[in-house]
């Protein structure tokens, strides 16, 4: 069960959770609505940077006050998520660049940025 908190604190925790969830949801909806892979790669980072950070911060505040001691597990989760997501996204982006170049959707030169790609399944 949820423990009883002072009103201002429960409002603070609620605001953190709600704002974080809103940012994460907006990122996930962006994954659906944006039209190109290189645009979509920006969407999930909203959930992993600020969205996740706010939810984890709210959780840390809540547990620290209800357990009467410092609860900092959330810092470890936040570190794992914020450090690992960029690594996976970079790998994915490099794989996509590699595939795009192999498929010939490049401008001039091997290192130039890929052109707009037709959205067909492979």
């Amino acid at each position: 069960m949820i423990a009883d908190l002072p009103l201002w604190l429960s409002i603070l925790v609620s605001a953190g959770v709600l704002a974080g969830a809103l940012l994460t949801m907006a990122g996930c909806l962006g994954l659906v609505r944006l039209r190109d892979f290189y645009l979509r790669i920006h969407a999930p980072t909203m959930g992993t940077s600020m969205g996740g950070g706010l939810i984890l911060l709210a959780s840390a505040i809540y547990f620290t006050l209800t357990q009467q001691r410092l609860v900092v597990h959330e810092i470890a989760i936040f570190l794992f998520v914020t450090v690992t997501t960029p690594v996976t996204l970079m790998l994915l982006a490099r794989a996509t660049l590699f595939r795009d170049r192999a498929a010939g959707f490049t401008a001039t030169g091997p290192d130039a940025a890929p052109k707009e790609r037709p959205e067909v399944a492979d």
Binding site: H42, A43, T45, M46, S49, T85, P86, V87, A93, L97
Partner: peptide
Amino acid sequence: LACILTATPGSAWLEYD
């Protein structure tokens, strides 16, 4: 630098030569 740029939603690091 790569982690900071990719963690920022407005930019993504793709490739370093």
